[in-house]
């Protein structure tokens, strides 16, 4: 139920506003989740780019173990995204897991929420396996290298631009009720204070 504010009355009864019908947006969370899936599939950071980055920047002796970890991430993505999905969807899931865990040591509350939000309920053991594998891969690189990998793509997407209003000093203070006199308990009206106009 909406608030009974005068602005709401104006929205309902005046001709100065657009009359929107919100009933069709009841399933908007579901629509939003599918949009995010689409965006994930279109992401510039692909699984192939991650694999190439890892192989290009590591010595040959580390390749075997790291390739094992990459396979683990892909396998976990398959379990989280759903094995019935096409390879493209599974790889984009693996990218998501890599991005989520590349700076983390364990699956925390935020990570759990992010994965659940993207893919729905998932086996926690798969997330743990992906996290551990990502950690092992990440241990071969500096923080700067990993950030460069993720940001290189984000800059191409324009996500690293100047945020409008970042220097605006914003106050969270809101109008509140004033302190006022207590509810009188005698129930009497203060008659003597009324101005007399009998001149």
């Amino acid at each position: 139920a909406g608030r009974q504010v005068p602005a709401k009355a104006l929205r309902s009864f005046s001709n100065v506003t657009k009359h929107d019908n919100y009933s069709e947006e009841l399933a908007d969370l579901t629509t939003k989740r599918s949009k995010l899936h689409e965006q994930l599939l279109k992401s510039d950071l692909t699984w192939k780019k991650i694999v190439k980055f890892v192989n290009d920047n590591l010595e040959k002796k580390d390749h075997q173990s790291v390739n094992g970890d990459l396979k683990t991430i892909l396998q976990s993505a398959k379990q989280i995204v759903g094995a019935e999905n096409v390879q493209e969807a599974i790889e984009s899931g693996a990218v998501f897991l890599f991005k989520t865990f590349h700076m983390k040591e364990c699956v925390g509350h935020d990570e759990t929420k992010a994965i659940k939000q993207m893919f729905g309920p998932f086996p926690s053991s798969s997330a743990t396996a992906a996290c551990n594998a990502t950690c092992r891969i990440a241990s071969h690189f500096t923080e700067e290298q990993l950030t460069a990998l993720i940001q290189m793509v984000e800059e191409q997407n324009g996500d690293n631009r100047v945020f409008f209003g970042k220097n605006v000093v914003f106050s969270f203070d809101m109008h509140d009720l004033d302190r006022c006199e207590e509810l009188p308990i005698n129930g009497e009206v203060d008659a003597q204070k009324i101005i007399s106009l009998d001149y």
Binding site: A7, K8, L10, V16, T17, D176
Partner: peptide, 23 residues
């Protein structure tokens, strides 16, 4: 495009007028 209308302006004043009045 109804980006602003009178009801929206009233709401903006109630929500942001106290702390961000001058802006």
């Amino acid at each position: 495009n109804f980006l602003f209308d009178i009801p929206k302006i009233l709401d903006l004043c109630v929500l942001f007028g106290k702390g961000n009045g001058p802006l």
